[in-house]
Write a protein that binds this DNA or RNA. Structure first.
Length: 254
DNA sequence: GGGTTTCAGCCCTTTACGTCA
DNA sequence: ACTGACGTAAAGGGCTGAAAC
């Protein structure tokens, strides 16, 4: 499978909505770089005869042509799922259903023979091939969002429906955000631990000083208002201690 | 020019499926 | 063979901005 696509041009609206299209500003490695999907796809030349994964070749879908936003050719299983999903959406009157009505109708018109097989069946989830995932990943590194042209180009290049590319990018952004959230969470956790340690240390110091106050009550004559900060050790000291050159004694009135 | 409607894109949550230990 | 955890494709709904009216 040849994967050579230049998305050269910048999206016309790369991050069109400031509040919603948040540029996460970093690029993470794919979560499952080494994962090799074992499901084989019939549009890949070495797929045949494996017997593993979805046996979509046996579905009597004669149509490889997709009408969805102009994608040229798609996989048989994506054709199956696309039809099923569009049909469901239209039946339910969902927003997406309305959006895809035209394409789905066209598709259905060319798939009338398959109605009986597909009615009421659950969606068939496909897994993208390693090559498809890798290419999408590369594209994502270039831009985390796609304009319609880029989406179509990617879809055509990868033999996917534009909707699949769109969904992949949505899910990919979600994964990126989730990872970033986890990283942030870890950072905050460490901050919290550090602050807890600091708090413990200060509490301990406070206890020591209180004990000192009890054991050496004569140092405690000065009222709190006369306390000054020792410039060398930056601790609060009595005026007397300070005037005497501050021996860095921990004399505090608490 | 401002209000309304429609459309499309995005995000978030959930569902369902595939894979693996 | 079975099962639970995990990853991920996809659905559905809400929100928003842009364009058309």
């Amino acid at each position: 499978m040849e994967l050579a696509l230049s998305l050269g041009e910048q999206p016309s609206k790369p991050f069109p909505k400031s509040s919603r299209s948040r540029d996460l500003g970093f690029c993470m490695a794919p979560a499952d770089e080494n994962r090799v999907p074992s499901v084989r796809f019939p549009w890949l030349t070495d797929n045949h005869g494996d017997g593993r994964g979805l046996d979509v070749n046996r579905l009597s879908l004669a149509v490889a042509e997709e009408s969805d936003e102009g994608a040229a050719v798609s996989s048989p299983n994506s054709a199956v799922s696309s039809f099923q999903m569009d049909f469901g959406r239209i039946r339910n009157g969902s927003k997406r259903g309305k959006r895809d009505l035209k394409g789905a109708e066209a598709e259905r018109a060319s798939n009338d023979d398959d109605d009986d097989e597909l009615n009421g069946s659950a969606r068939k989830k496909l897994r993208l091939s390693k090559e498809q995932s890798a290419f999408l990943e590369e594209s994502f590194k270039e831009h985390s969002t796609l304009n319609p042209k880029q989406k179509l180009a990617l879809a055509k290049q990868l033999n996917l429906r534009p909707r699949q590319v769109e969904v992949w990018f949505q899910n990919r952004r979600a994964r990126t955000k989730l990872k970033q959230t986890k990283v942030d969470c870890e950072y905050l956790k460490r901050c919290c631990e550090t602050l807890t340690e600091e708090n413990k240390r200060l509490q301990k110091e406070l206890q020591e000083l209180r004990a000192l106050k009890i054991s050496q009550p004569f140092y405690m004559h000065s009222p709190a208002t006369t306390l000054t900060m020792c410039p060398s050790c930056e601790r609060v000291a009595t005026a007397k201690a300070s005037a005497a050159g501050c021996q860095h004694q921990r004399i505090l009135l608490l």
